[in-house]
Every structure is written in C-alpha cells, then in structure tokens.
Design a protein around this nucleic acid. Structure first.
Lengths: 367, 367
DNA sequence: CTCACGTAAGTAAACGTTTACCTAGATGGT
DNA sequence: ACCATCTAGGTAAACGTTTACTTACGTGAG
C-alpha cells in the first residue's frame, strides 16, 4: 500500500458511524464517531503485513525473535502514522497503569502545591504519571477520591496529611499500595511507607526560639485540634514551655485549620481575648493570615509581635518581611514518598519504609 | 450462596497466579496477583444468577425492562460486596473517560494553582475528573503531555497560557476537544472555546493608574518577550504612555518569565541600569519578586517605588503590604473553561465560545 | 535421514465493561 | 386460534492491547 491509500479502520460495530474525512496530505483517514483518528496496533499490523502480536512485541521492545527488517518496517510505520498506544487498553490487560494518585487536603495551600509538584517530578522521572485529588479535609470526598483512583486503576496512592484518619475498611478493601504522609494511619497490608515529619521537635524548636528571644506569652495556632498532627505539635510547644519553666495558658491556644483564613480569624480572636508578644503558627499559611490580622490592629511584625511559621513554603522568603519558620524540606519529602511507592511497586516484599524527617529552624525577619 | 462462601474469580489465565487470602470477616476472597480483590460485574452476575448484561443495565440505570426483584438483588449484592466499576474497561468500550486534562506551565505559580483548583471544582460538579500536567513552559513537555493525555483517553483538554504556541500539527492529529486559555492558538476543528483576558486593557489600566499617581518612569516586567501574552500587555503599557504624552524608554523594560525568580532578577537588572519610581509587573509573582529586590536595595514600597501586580492571586491581599494589582477573576475563568468544554462534549455542533474577560484594577497598599 | 534446537512469526484468549440484537414467555385483541 | 406487542432478560461482539502457547521453517549434529 502506498501513502495515498484509503486505510480502513477495524471492522466497526454496525451501529457506530464511520466518517471518512479528507486529512492533510491528501489522504483519507479513518475517523470514529467523535471525529478522532484512531490508529491502532491492528492498523499498523495490517499495513506491515504482520500480526498484531508482532507489532506489540516490537513496540514494547520484546523483539528478541523478530527480524531486523520487520522491526524497522513496524517502527517506521508507527512513526509515520503517529501511532499512540491506547493506555486504557494496555492497562486493562496488564492491570497496571503506571499512574499514581495523590490526595491532598488543599492544593491552594502552598505547602501542598510544592509537595504535589515534587511528587509529580519524581514520578515522571520513573516513568509514572500522577492524578491529583483535593479532599478539602472532607472524609467523604477523600473516600470518593480513593474509590475514584481505584476505579481508574492507579498503581499506588500518596495520601498527604489532612485532619482525618482515613477509613481503614476502605483502604483494606482497595488494597492499593499506599504512602501515608504526616498522618495517623492504621496498620495496613498495603501501606508501603510512611513519611512523617517530627512535628514535636519542629514545634519545640519554634517555641524554644521564641522563648529564647525573651517572649513569655506565646500564642499557638494550628489545625484541627482533634488531629494528631496538631496534638503532636502542641506537645512540642508545651514541652518548650515546661523546659523553660514557663506556664502554659490555654487562652493562648487556637486550633482549627491550617489555611490563611483560619490564621486571620484565630489571631483576631486571640487578640480580643488576651495579650501576647509572639505567635507560634503551625503553618506558613497560618502565619500569613496572622500577620494580616496583626497589621489590622496596627501591630508591627516583629516589633510588636514576633511570628514564626512552619513549612518554609517557597513564598515565605518572598514576603516583604521574610518569614521565620520551621523548614520541612517539602520537595525532598515528596520525592521520598514517590520513590518509596515505586520501589514498593517494583518489589512488594521489601521492608516498609518509615521515614521521620527532622525539621530545622530558619530565622528571617519576623522574629 | 451465603456470606462465608469461597467466591471464585473469573477463570483466569493459567499463568497468572491466584492467591486465596483470608479476608476480614472470616471470608475467603478472590485475590489477583497484585493482591487486589477483584469484584467484577461477572461476579455479581454469577451470584445473582443473571447475566453480566443485566447487571450492567441495572447499575447504569438502564433498567427499564428489569424486574424490581432482580434490580434490588443486584443493587444489594453490589453494595454488600463493594463493587466498584472498572473505569478502564468502561472507557475502553464507551470511548469516553469522563476525565479532562489540564495543562499549565507552572503549578507553583499561584495563578495556575487557583485556576487548576477552579477547573477541578467545576469538572467534579459535572461528573468529570481532571488530570493535571505541568509543562514548565517547555514545548517538548507540553507535546509529551498532550500525547499522554490522548493516550489516556481524556475527553477534553484545557490548555492554559504558556509562552509557546502549541504544535498545531499535533493538536490537529489528536483531535481532542480543546479549550485554550490566554494564548495564541491556531484555528482548529477541535478548538471548543477560547477564554482570554483582555491583557491590553489590563496593562493599560495598570500603567495608567501609575501615571495618574504622578509617576513618569515606570518599569515594565513581564514574561517571555516573544509570547503574545507579553506583547499584548506591552502594547497596553505603551498606549497608556502615549495617551499621557509620556515617552517610552526601552531601558525600563525587562521580559523573561512570569515567576518570582525572574521578578527578582529583572528588578535587580533594572535597578542597576536605570532609575524609576514605579513598576508595572505583569503577574503577582513577578511583583513579589520585585518587592524583594527593592527591599534588598533598601527601597521601600510604595514610598520609594510603587508596585503593581497582575492576576490578583489569593496571596496578594495577604502580603504585609497588600499588593495593588489587576484583577482577573481566576476562578471564574477556570469554571468558564471547563463548562465550555463539557458543553461542547455534550453537543459538539454548538457554536465555539470566545470569551474575553475584562480585568479591573484593585488598589491596595503598594501604590 | 532424523532429531533437536533456534528463529520468526502467528493464534487466540484474556482484561471488564457496554450494547445491539435476539429470545421466550405472557398478555391481549380479533 | 392467531398474531402483535410487551416484558424480562440473555447472547455475543466489540473496545485495543498483551502474552502464553503454537507453528513452521530452517540448520547443524549425530
């Protein structure tokens, strides 16, 4: 067949309309109902005069027993006709999609933006792609996303911290290799790794730095009070006080969420309720919200009130007053997570990894 | 069959190992090689004593001619066994995945974070999911993502501005319904809609505001100088000058990228080269970078140099000096894009939409 | 010459759905 | 009694791959 031939598509279901459309280069192409040109392995096979199996073998480089001639014919045909494998069909038979799902509570929180980005980069490096899901810290959405990802055949899932403890029953049932980041998680067969941050130390360092600078009344603002990642941080904050012989005043504590909106509101509440000279915010977004509230009341940072953040998101040093914060090496965590997942996929018998990342304090201008 | 029976899976390929694993609730479950419990429509059918077709009809609510009894049996079985349809198999036969792809240049740019979020929300509202891809403004990555998305059978794609004009040949070939946001794009059959921002007016408003405030030397910082979305902005900036009878000094212009890093570098360069009392930054990220550079040199904002942003990302009002900027209604744009796409998917014959969003100026404290 | 083996393919089943079309029984009208 | 129609559901092909197994044809050794 030469280059100007009419290529028939596969025999198609009688009910499905076929359209022959004049393509570029004066060629007739087979086009399906939605107007998509469909080049399949069978088309290549027919044109090359071989079977579909042979084409598949060549294209997947399992061509040990294929002659050089056939091999080249298939490759050049595939290139010429811009053959793109149908990943859906491939996934169906191989039961592997080379896609990993990522669930985060809030992509608008720059911490998660960075994390997602890092995961994506790490995944692509190893030939995987990612699908992103936002849970909004809503258990129902989280469960729905989990089911969605399972239904779409992802090979593994990275679940990043949210306030909620995931539905163990669901996870157990899905049996999809899972990486848990910074959250409490039940013991699960499919748990490939945990990447956690030593929040206790992080909060301790943050509060200790403030105490060391002479502050005696330090507000504490964090996420959902019921969630472990808040409780643990609070423990660090309290230990810093105990070790310095300072009392802990519950009036100084406001927990709710990690976003800037809560930071703003919590700070207003705190300001109305009591007095303090420093704030220990358990996320940078919280610290940004807090700073806005402080300014509203005419309070300067750090002159009237010092502010510590947590996470060291990329925006932190870009603020007009670069934010002092607790560094978490977000990208490294994301990369670690995805690498652990893919390693587990490659060899599920290997030991589960448990990583505890140690945070450090970065002093900039808000303290 | 009662609840404690051994459920055999489908007859499986002889070579594929089957493992019978003791599940929760003292039940033996059929488990595949990767350890995943596989409940298929056939399992439900066998248990209900009907054909797979009947199960499919019921579960898809095409059950006009199915008895109430059968229907209930199938539903309760499906619920009880936590049947989750295999979207991959479904997509293969229906040729529709109810997934849309989103390509952005840089998810770390808060503008795109918000856009992606809005698209995701809009898509989910209409029963679609999204897959996110980062192009890093790299034509090769963009092409690779396009191919990836096509290969994964997305129903449509939202492509957000990057500096590059997309590969028309590739797009033409893929024939996937496309929404183009804020970028030059060739006339394409599959172009479902364009959602653009009136950059010319936006930049004009930004510069005019600064001129109105008495500034005479206003720096202009924007993205890739070859890209239309920079050229058009520059035209607006220049028009504002012309209309005010002000000269345009090329020394005041630095174009490269829209991220904060370039904002920082460009401002340093400008500061070394010439003098000015205001900056017209064509993205908020650029403005944030510019502010940092200004501070470095001991210049206060807005006392020594006024700064205008562009986009009104959610962080803009959270800065210690809330940023004056040009508002773009990011979420609305995202929603518009996805709605246009899905409407097109529902009815491809409808007229293509062309939306030009009008920006407005928001004055805060940096000017 | 036979047999074993290596090479270059081809065959067909399988993945889990959806769906056009078929069937068989029941009902009802003439 | 016969035919048409409705109801409830079954059959089998199709989607585009991958892959275990088979085949057919050398070729060299014994």
């Amino acid at each position: 067949m030469d280059g100007a031939t009419l290529f028939l598509g596969n025999a198609i279901h009688a009910s499905r309309m076929a359209i022959c459309r004049q393509g570029a280069g004066d060629r007739l192409l087979f086009v399906d109902m939605r107007g998509n040109v469909a080049i399949t392995i069978k088309d290549i096979a027919r044109q090359a005069g071989v079977s579909a199996a042979t084409v598949s073998k060549v294209l997947n480089r399992k061509d040990q027993f294929i002659s050089e001639e056939t091999r080249e014919k298939i490759w050049s045909l595939a290139r010429e006709r811009n053959y793109t494998p149908n990943s859906i069909a491939r996934s169906l038979v191989t039961r592997s999609s080379r896609v990993i799902g990522i669930i985060v509570p809030d992509i608008l929180n720059a911490y998660f933006t960075e994390l997602v980005r890092a995961c994506d980069v790490a995944a692509r490096e190893r030939g995987y792609s990612t699908i992103l899901c936002n849970s909004d810290s809503d258990p129902e959405k989280e469960a729905a996303h989990l089911t969605f990802l399972a239904s779409h055949g992802v090979d593994g899932i990275v679940m990043a911290a949210s306030d909620l403890i995931p539905d163990a029953g669901l996870l157990e049932r899905l049996r999809i290799p899972l990486i848990s980041m910074d959250r409490e998680i039940p013991e699960l067969d499919c748990l490939a790794a945990r990447i956690d941050t030593d929040y206790e130390t992080g909060a301790f360092l943050s509060a200790s730095h403030l105490i060391g600078a002479g502050h005696k009344r330090i507000a504490f603002v964090s996420g959902n009070p019921l969630a472990s990642n808040t409780k643990i941080r609070r423990a660090g904050y309290e230990r810093a006080h105990r070790e310095a012989g300072l009392p802990i005043d519950p009036d100084l504590i406001e927990c709710g969420a990690f976003n800037h909106r809560f930071g703003l509101m919590a700070t207003r509440t705190l300001l109305d309720r009591t007095s303090f000279s420093a704030m220990c915010c358990m996320s940078d977004m919280l610290a940004m919200g807090a700073t806005v509230a402080l300014r509203e009341r005419g309070l300067g940072v750090p002159e009237d009130c010092a502010v510590m953040g947590f996470d060291n998101i990329y925006i932190a040093p870009l603020l007009v007053r670069p934010l002092s914060t607790v560094e978490r090496r977000i990208s490294e965590a994301g990369q670690l997570a995805v690498d652990a997942l893919i390693d587990f996929l490659d060899d599920p018998t290997q030991p589960r990894r448990m990583v505890l990342m140690e945070p450090t304090v970065i002093l900039r201008e808000t303290t």
